[in-house]
Design a protein around this nucleic acid. Sequence first.
RNA 1: AGUUUGAUAGUGUAACGGUAGCACCCCAGACUCUGACUCUGUUAGUCUAGGUUCGAAUCCUAGUCAAACUACCA
Length: 555
Amino acid sequence: MSEERSLNFLEEIIEQDIAAGTHNGRVHTRFPPEPNGYLHIGHATSICLNFGLAKKYNGKCNLRFDDTNPTTEETEYVENIKNDIKWLGFQWDNEFYASDYFDKLYEFATLLISKGLAYVDDSTAEEIAATKGSTTTPGTNSPYRSRTIEENLHLFTEMRAGKYKDGEKTLRAKVDMAHPNLLLRDPLMYRIKHEHHHRTGNKWCIYPMYDFAHGQSDSIEEITHSICTLEFIHHRPLYNWFIEQLGIFPSRQYEFARRNLTYTVMSKRKLLQLVNEKHVTGWDDPRMPTISGMRRRGYPPEALRTFSDTIGIAKRENIVDIGMLEFCVREQLNKKANRVMAVLDPVRLIVTNYPEGVTEVFHAENNPEDQSAGTREVPFSRELWIEREDFMEEAPKKFFRLAPGNKVRLKNAYIVTCDGCVKDESGTITEIHCTYLPESKSGNDTSGLTVKGTIHWVSIQHAKTAEVRLYDRLFRVEDPSNEDGDFKDYINPDSVQTLPSVFIEPAMAKTMPGQSVQFMRKGYFCADTDSTPDRLIFNRTVTLKDAWAKEQKRN
RNA sequence: AGUUUGAUAGUGUAACGGUAGCACCCCAGACUCUGACUCUGUUAGUCUAGGUUCGAAUCCUAGUCAAACUACCA
């Protein structure tokens, strides 16, 4: 029995609308990315919101590319965005492009000119900025503001026909140059750009501005609830003004606070910089907060969805602890990922009373959380690799691993007693010796002993190797954008550590790219997209919680 | 400075005039063939000052702080 969750403010609005019979209770949202970059975790929240709301209220959600600026937009981005949305687990009802509406938008503009509500302005960008006024002073009217309707219609036709150069003329809405909201001081509707568009080619040389495209696109699609982030709140009066003056379907805009995450940056500009300046290997670098980066890192889509649900939605400034995301990732992977043994920092363990040349095969359960995951074969022999940190010559009381005289369980195998170690001239430990108890065999233990510690291992003779990349946070500080100086000064120099040759158990040889596993006691790892059976590569998705590490930190 | 938003444990989010709750984190313990998972318990909060009211996180007034806006980007 799950308790009824309280509604977020958007759900409240929608339920009120449904109760009031607005649009006959129909709910239709849209996700409107600009195809000029890759989607990141912030977009994921918006995707979950828009698609989630549509699903919850039996409505629809469109995917609409906001492609009104040919300078920055590319088809490559379109494909990646679609891929990311699908991977997150959502399917749009319609795939649209703002550029689909260029003809309609042109008609709308002509209509506004005819109503005396728009005019062609010859002012330069500088002149427009100069006459805009400020927050405390009103702007002044453009000298071209009083052109006749006929003249405006004629000039606008010429603009479209390509008679003018970039920036020579613009189409502006005639609203109010003294309006306290700067956005309503005769905003630009169209600008001239003699550029090739990724979909309309060279058909147009004038392109609508965001404000003259977004609301009308919503309206054309009869979007009922147009959900966007807080910075568009100032645009809402303009959004409504165009819809009202045009007399078209009254879509309504609602704003929520974008989600920020600790230890990362989210702006497209900054992410692009990280890519271009090679601080990361690409948009899908596992350290990036992009959806493609998180996918490559091994974050499951379910985790991103539950994260989005868990953090909720509101209108206040926020910065969510990345630990919350990592919790959702672990929660999901704990249920799904098979357990395997891998030794990252090896040291040799010799079971001195185990016969030489003998191999014993154990059947290990793949996932204690999921019996249906089955078992796998794990070979055991006299010489094993174990984790260097699992042995201490002089151990504190609370150390439950190998130390002279201590007993531990070798996971899935036997209980062993540590007898000591061998060192080289420099004092480095080269071998650890132990003796095993034959009657403590896993699954058939008659020894009656219980031990405090269990460690993982890999048989030296049977071990395979893999490259392992240990990822950490990309930045050293919680909010790099909010620190003095350049955000790049705060990049974590140790955000990735590559271990070229880690020992893994043979059952892992067939791990497929994208597959997640748990390296027991070490963390969740995901086979990289570049991983092949001949050259296995694993990315650390997230560590396991480590109470022992915490304990040590305290001392 | 103007406009607009907003302010609840460390973080995120509820409570819609009637017991300030949930999740993450932290801490203590139980369990454990992963020091994982799971389970139990605990710490900790209404920006400030007035007012209305039997009763205020919630309503009113004033203040404080924060963010966004001031692109021929979206």
